[in-house]
């Protein structure tokens, strides 16, 4: 990267901070001017103090860690099943005709509509939350693996035939690498969906004990709401924004590294 483009990358990074900074300034001004109901529009210093306390007590870091772990575990389970089933239906026409209509139909069911059914089976504990997160991650991965495998150009597969590849060789050396961009896009999407699913599960299902602020950001938000602590609600929302942004950057950078063989589009 040339010196000039790295400088412009930095300035462009700074430019992205203008809007959040302006919002924070407007927020601080509104607090200083005593505009609005301070219970509903919490002044910025109150939120900052609440946030500081929540970090110091370990509640907020604990909640963030719990949410991230839960999202990662649920995503892994869902991605594993999605990958395995997508591979089967993507590689075999007969299994696709057998299983895909059902799976594509099940995909249309809104994620949180599964809660009554899954909670009846698995209770209201951790298993239930993980099942819901896994389910949310399953569909994007399943769809991308199925589509990725089916879209491998015949031209590439013919090369494998000419060199006498076995089916296993064809799958490992041609189909999976060729499908990798699609599959990785599905894994990325699944992670975003699983993140939303995690917060939803934590918020809606609760933690089995009251006001468990450390049991994920979703539970943190639910507890803050129960206690009418708008300052903590805002703290929860801001930490969601920040961790979500960091998670997204990490995922994008990782997949860029994996797909480095592709020509840079810009």
């Amino acid at each position: 990267m040339s010196a000039r483009s790295s400088i412009s990358a930095v300035t462009q990074g700074w430019r992205g901070l203008i809007v959040p900074a302006a919002l924070l300034a407007a927020w601080a001004l509104a607090g200083a001017a005593k505009a609005g109901n301070p219970v509903l529009l919490v002044p910025i210093d109150t939120v900052a103090r609440a946030g500081f306390d929540a970090i110091k007590s370990g509640e907020l870091p604990g909640a963030i860690a719990a949410t991230m772990t839960r999202a990662a575990v649920g995503w892994s389970i869902g991605a594993l099943f999605g990958f395995a089933i997508g591979l089967v239906t993507g590689l075999s026409d007969s299994s696709r005709r057998l299983a895909s209509p059902t799976l594509h139909g099940a995909r249309q069911i809104a994620l949180f509509a599964w809660i009554p059914l899954i909670s009846a089976w698995l209770g209201n504990g951790e298993a239930m939350k993980l099942a819901l997160i896994a389910l949310s991650a399953f569909f994007p991965v399943f769809l991308s693996v199925e589509a990725g495998c089916r879209q491998v150009p015949l031209a590439y597969r013919e090369v494998g035939r000419l060199f006498g590849f076995t089916r296993t060789g064809e799958i490992s050396c041609i189909i999976l690498p060729a499908a990798a961009p699609t599959i990785i896009a599905g894994l990325e999407l699944a992670f975003t969906v699983a993140w939303i699913g995690t917060i939803g599960a934590e918020y809606l299902i609760g933690s089995g004990y009251m006001y468990a602020f450390a049991d994920g950001i979703g539970a943190f938000l639910a507890g803050a709401r129960e206690n009418a602590r708008m300052d903590l609600v805002v703290v929860g929302i801001l930490s969601l924004a920040l961790t979500g942004f960091a998670r997204d950057r990490a995922v994008v950078l990782t997949s860029k590294r994996i797909l480095a063989w592709r020509p840079q589009s810009h």
Binding site: A155, Y156, V159, I174, P177, A178, A180, W261, R262
Partner: peptide, 10 residues
Amino acid sequence: FQDHRLFPWL
């Protein structure tokens, strides 16, 4: 082939 059919990831 006319299109070289090299695998772009290798």
